[in-house]
Design a protein around this nucleic acid. Structure first.
Lengths: 217, 217
DNA sequence: ACTACACTGCACCGTGTAGTGTAGTTCGCG
DNA sequence: CGCGAACTACACTACACGGTGCAGTGTAGT
């Protein structure tokens, strides 16, 4: 009655379409998802889809941006939640594991981020391209900043924050995804060990020489 | 006359089609490549394509296998060439860099391997699936074996060869591909530093504690 | 000369789907 | 009530593409 019901507001429809499109594009691929299917899933007429977004390409770009924003948000939030006040070297490993597991789990289907990048090149090959889309790099930057902070606190040895972030991501998410594909991390019991070992390898490579002795294993 | 010219042998046509299909699938994606285009590029009639491979799906699987074989061959050969007789810890880093750079360069368009895996899930989602396709994992196994050999020689500390291989690949090729996309590594000057740093990180994480002191940078 | 074979070239069918045009319905608002 | 905006339902165009059938052609072997 009172609460936001001035006509099924355009914002709601828009986001419904975006969500439906994201789900379909992510699971079936861009080409194999028809606009009719997107419209049906969003509970909206096909015409409305075309009224909101001009054509299928533009819809893809919109999905792209939305997913990027969402992923970035999740990462920033999770950094704050799990890595913010870690000062004890002994806590670092478990904190990083918790962080990685939460990232892997929280994203709606967990591999959103990877699939996002896959859609980038698979989707068409001629998107406005990366100069115009710093979104793709933002998560790495965010993680890099946090690692640099650990370095300033004497926990890590990080000459190049961005590179270290790439290495961290590769060792945890990268390995998990390339081994298990798009499995939903929440349930699969193979995920955690993989992440733990990734974090350990990262720490062996980046832990500050001035902190705890390299107690192997 | 004598040397394999009994009619434009079926083997030649077959491989021409396979090559054309691979190039198109890899650059444009499976869905966006028409069978007509493949036939044209192979210099063959569309009908012939359908006579050789039954349908488009089967063609994809054939390409899949062919690329897998080729990648595996390249990796095995390169391991033999660049890593076989390394016994001095001091040589290890440069040997691994040489190995990685040659892999990144030798493959026709360098990212064949990654794109292969992308096609796996992007291509259709319903290939006979990995139980039946150990090809996808073979490169990791091969590298893992070599790392295990280094471990036996006292150069590395490798409790889990397969995992170490995954980590190595992630730190070198994984990072390079995710940062630069499908750039042809031969020319791009950004590739080498990335690979070098990946190898160094790997060695920091896996170098045997009994060998050279961790001389940081 | 005749046959078998490996292909080409082309017409052709069916279908899935991007995108559009439009008439009609619903609903809030003055 | 009547207006206009937001949508839906639906019909319809245009086209690309997977796949097939078939007639015809060049070549090798007999």
């Amino acid at each position: 009655m009172s609460t936001a019901k001035t006509r099924a507001g355009s914002a709601e429809k828009r986001s419904a379409i975006l969500t439906a499109a994201r789900e379909l594009f992510l699971t079936d691929g861009f080409d194999r998802s028809s606009v009719d299917a997107v419209a049906a899933r969003a509970g909206v007429s096909k015409r409305t889809v075309y009224d909101y977004f001009g054509d299928k390409q533009t819809l893809l770009e919109a999905v792209f941006d939305a997913v990027g924003q969402s992923v970035l948000g999740t990462i920033r939030r999770t950094i704050d939640d799990t890595l913010h006040d870690v000062t004890d070297p002994a806590e670092l490993e478990s904190a990083l594991v918790t962080f990685s597991m939460r990232i892997a789990t929280d994203m709606l289907d967990s591999t959103e981020y990877a699939t996002l990048q896959r859609l980038d090149r698979t989707g068409s090959g001629h998107l406005p391209h990366h100069d115009d889309r710093p979104l793709t790099d933002a998560p790495e930057e965010a993680i890099g900043e946090r690692l640099a902070a650990f370095a300033r606190a004497g926990l890590l040895d990080v000459p190049d924050a961005r590179l270290a972030a790439d290495h961290f991501i590769a060792l945890t998410f990268g390995v998990t995804i390339s081994r298990l594909g798009s499995a939903n991390a929440a349930e699969d019991p193979r995920v955690r060990p993989l992440v733990v070992e990734g974090v350990r390898a990262f720490l062996r490579a980046y832990r500050s020489t001035r902190s705890s002795r390299p107690r192997r294993r």
